[in-house]
Amino acid sequence: MFAFRPGVFLIALVPAVLWPGCSRKADQPVAFNHKLHIYNGVACTVCHVGAETGLRAGLPGVETCRRCHEDLLYESDEEAKIRLAVELDRDLDWIPLTRLAPFVLFSHNRHVTLGKFNCVTCHGDVASWSVPPRVPERNFHGRPGMADCIGCHQESHSRYAGSDCLFCHH
């Protein structure tokens, strides 16, 4: 159980909301090529099914990969991993990079569909990556934290994006 110490936060003043990825580098189970998929017309929401309508964007299960990769598409080790996973009926252990603190409500639906944000605004130009990002591809200034949310929420002229703590904390 994660236990944050209130005292620490008092000193830090701004509690971290987005877990900084700086301290670690994630090796994804498959060296996924975002660029190639986008080039081939695979939309973000094919794999990140909740990006427009869900709370979270989500990461694809092996079943999603199987739909295209069951039969040999390319001669590659990475694709072989997928077929092996399908064969063994195991899921791919994707490592989520952008982690939200458990006491924050962030809804993709609300931001993407209702608020008309682009993925790029928060996630950067992931579509141009040919290897999986090892750290969150963010375009926040400095250390990602509540400041990055509140920046928008305070500037926004939308009355839906208030800056009352209750709007996001639970």
């Binding site: 944050f4 209130p6 936060f9 008092l10 509690p15 006491f103 009352d164 209750l166 904390h169």
Partner: peptide
């Protein structure tokens, strides 16, 4: 807070 609710924001609480 909003809607007249008395908020309790845990990460702020010392």
């Amino acid at each position: 807070g909003a809607y007249g609710l008395v908020a309790q924001i845990y990460p702020r609480c010392i």
